[in-house]
Amino acid sequence: MFVINCPYCGERDQSEFSCGGEAHIVRPKQPTELSDDEWAEYLFMRKNIKGVQFERWNHAHGCRKWFNMVRDTSNDKIHAVYKMGEKPPVI
């Protein structure tokens, strides 16, 4: 179980958080103009990276804020956390 450094609350136990999957998949502004393929790409297709992954987390049992995390999925090491809207760090 990780310790996650919530950008709003500081270090808290992982059990307070929930994961929202891959980050920086922006919801299309004009979904109706996408082909079925393009929509499926947004909706379902994921990189599912083994290694350094950018992902969304929510401090569900805390401040309820969503934020982004850079985590290595091959060893669960957390490299960085940053707020929504902030530029992703270079890892």
Partner: peptide, 13 residues
């Protein structure tokens, strides 16, 4: 576990 991981370990909870 409710997050992507390739560690073949898991959390105690």
């Amino acid at each position: 576990d409710a997050y992507i991981s390739y560690t073949q370990r898991g959390s105690h909870d």
